[in-house]
């Protein structure tokens, strides 16, 4: 994912004065192409009105009509929005196929150094703060630094792009069903309403230790040690790999963690270091919250 400070290009599909109203099917096709490409598009309708600039550069697309068309002016001009200069580009897309329109938008995006959408599948946890109790189990559990805390020691999703695609494991660890993955297949993890039946079925109220008959990292370590002992005698790397896969399959079945995520886990030593760091971060956050509560 590119920098969060890099703004995307805002596309305006203009049908106001000086621009033709696009034929319905053409408009749908152009829109669908741009949206599939990840762009955001403001459709003005016949009024031609658009909401205020938001800091992003703007590309106005439309089919020119008459001599006073906005598309007859130069392709770029500068306006000031809250002290910030925003570039506005105009492109007449008359007769262009949707694919060509997408190319035009992409070119202007490159030219303006705007954020390029579609480089990252947006898979990351979203916290339902109506349910979250800041127990820090997610912070303690995640090995990939996705979670952190804000200045008030409240849990936050700090690094969404570090989340492992299709892995919903932290949501299963959460005892309060407070972690969503909007692109997950089923509820309540996908954001569907949470009811008691869901809680029981998803075993959400059970922590990972109960799910796996022991701490997940302890389990991994134990397996590793047993395997290491056996394999040091056998010196059979193939068997070691099979053992790791067997262990990971067990975890996969119990927690819903995709195989590719498990297979990409760091070495056992790194896992233990990461787990220790995550636990320390969670403990520190809980302690800070406790102190804040006592002071208040």
């Amino acid at each position: 994912m590119s920098s969060a400070t890099q703004n995307p290009l805002r596309v305006v599909l203009y049908e106001g004065p000086g621009g033709k109203a696009l034929e319905s099917q053409r408009k749908v096709d152009v829109l669908a192409k741009l949206l599939k490409g990840g762009y955001q598009v403001t459709c003005t309708g016949e009024s031609g009105d658009v909401s205020a600039p938001d800091g992003s550069d703007v590309l106005v697309l439309g089919e020119a009509e008459g001599q006073d068309s906005p598309f007859s002016q130069s392709t770029s001009t500068g306006v000031v929005s809250e002290g910030e200069e925003v570039e506005v580009h105009f492109k007449d897309i008359s007769g262009q196929e949707p694919e060509t329109v997408l190319e035009t938008v992409s070119e202007v995006g490159t030219q303006t150094e705007s954020y390029t959408p579609g480089e990252w599948k947006p898979w990351f946890p979203v916290i339902d703060f109506h349910r979250c109790t800041n127990c820090m189990q997610c912070l303690s559990f995640c090995l990939f630094d996705v979670y952190g805390v804000d200045a008030e020691s409240n849990i936050q999703v700090k690094n969404p792009d570090k989340c492992k695609t299709n892995c919903p494991a932290c949501s299963r660890v959460c005892p309060d069903v407070a972690i969503l993955f909007p692109k997950y297949g089923s509820g309540p993890i996908n954001g569907d309403v949470v009811n008691q039946e869901d809680v029981n079925r998803e075993k959400m109220k059970v922590d990972i230790s109960a799910l796996l008959g022991g701490n997940i990292y302890d389990l991994l370590r134990d397996r590793h040690e047993k395997a290491a002992s056996r394999f040091s005698k056998e010196r059979d790397e193939g068997k070691a790999l099979k053992e790791r896969i067997r262990c990971l399959k067990k975890l996969q079945g119990d927690s819903g963690i995709p195989e590719e995520v498990l297979m990409s886990l760091p070495s056992m030593d790194e896992i233990q270091t990461k787990a220790k760091q995550a636990k320390e971060a969670a403990d520190a956050a809980l302690k800070a919250r406790e102190e804040r509560k006592n002071e208040g």
Binding site: P8, G45, P117
Partner: peptide, 30 residues
């Protein structure tokens, strides 16, 4: 999408709200 276009109303369309949220896209505040 077709229904919106047929309505001839002005509207905002976004590629993916999740992606915008992850990037804290200023458009969401707008």
């Amino acid at each position: 999408l077709a229904g919106l276009v047929e309505s001839e109303k002005a509207f905002e369309a976004v590629g993916d709200l999740c992606e915008m949220s992850a990037r804290k896209d200023p458009a969401l505040q707008r």
